[in-house]
């Protein structure tokens, strides 16, 4: 049967469209990227080969490091804070009555379906220093001294952006975890219940170990997602104040489009792709890699 359907012609027809689209629009653009990163380029004219100068300049630029610190802070927030919180929500959701659970599920996914622009703009209003929600709440409970201009204070700008990001995707991740939990056969719990294990014990000893595969998927999703953190920054702070809330992707755009140095911008892009590759390998090798059979 395989022979009957696998003619050269049919293989070509089935494989070519996707491979072509993928090659042209996803892989090919990486090549001029590398070429451009070795030249001085203003987006329009090639001003000559400069070797690795663009890379050296990138490393010498303090904004480049600020952008890295910020990017990895967001990655850290979404992994260290976001994933455990999502997991806790998922575990609690599992213990609720079906009605409450349905209600919760709809609410949890809601932020993720809103447009990034909308979410970011709403949070701009929440963080607004003069009439915004957070300062309003702090004032009303007598914590006037805690109020601040969240998006222009250098200590709070990144955590504030991180919180918005967290809020938008925490429910979605909880849902992913929850569906994983649903696939765990009930008999695993019965033994534990006879032993008199409590909720926390059941969760850490049975549920989470059996969720390795889903955890792995969600970790990759959130790490790569937060590496490319950009749109919220664009809308909420434009990378400001100054360069303090730029992420790597933002710094790349800024360098290429705002300062008209496309060569330097693409050098940052090339470095960033390498980082993403390394991180993917790392997660692939070391994080939640054992697939547990049950």
């Amino acid at each position: 049967m395989n022979k009957y359907y696998s003619t050269r012609m049919s293989i070509f027809v089935f494989a070519a469209p996707a491979l072509l689209l993928f090659t042209v629009f996803c892989v090919y653009p990486l090549l001029p990227q590398i070429w451009m990163s070795l030249h001085e380029h203003d987006g329009f004219r090639n001003l000559g080969f400069v070797g690795l100068d663009n890379y050296k300049d990138a490393f010498a630029n303090s904004s480049f490091w600020t952008a890295h610190r910020n990017t990895y802070l967001i990655v850290g927030i979404s992994v260290v804070l976001g994933l455990p919180l999502s997991m806790i929500l998922a575990l609690i959701m599992d213990t609720q009555t079906p009605n409450l659970r349905r209600f919760f599920k709809s609410a949890a996914m809601f932020p993720a379906i809103l447009s990034v622009t909308v979410v970011a703009q709403i949070w701009v209003a929440f963080y607004e220093p003069n009439w915004g929600l957070f300062n309003g709440i702090l004032k009303s409970v007598g914590l006037e001294s805690w109020t601040r201009s969240w998006l222009t204070d250098q200590r709070t700008v990144m955590p504030s952006l991180g919180l918005t990001f967290l809020w938008q995707y925490i429910g979605l991740n909880a849902m992913l975890f929850y569906t994983g939990i649903k696939t765990i056969p009930k008999q695993y719990y019965e033994a534990a219940l006879i032993d008199g294990a409590n909720f926390a014990q059941v969760s850490t000893r049975i549920t989470i170990p059996l969720l390795q595969y889903v955890i792995h998927y969600v970790v990759i999703l959130s790490v790569l997602g937060s590496m490319a953190f950009y749109s919220h920054v664009r809308v909420m702070t434009s990378g400001g104040p100054g360069d303090l809330s730029r992420t790597v992707v933002y710094q790349m755009y800024y360098t290429a489009f705002e300062t008209s140095q496309f060569g330097k911008g693409t050098a940052i892009a090339v470095l960033f792709v390498l980082e993403c590759l390394l991180i993917s390998i790392f997660i692939q090798r070391f994080v939640a890699r054992e697939k547990l059979e049950y």
Partner: peptide, 28 residues
């Protein structure tokens, strides 16, 4: 020029936060 203009925007905004030393601004 375009780049200096963009960088002056960046540096100027930081100065307005009150958390950026004038000397650092001048050096940058």
């Amino acid at each position: 020029d375009a780049r200096t203009s963009a960088e002056l925007s960046t540096q100027g905004a930081r100065l307005l936060t009150g958390q950026y030393a004038a000397d650092t601004f001048a050096e940058e």
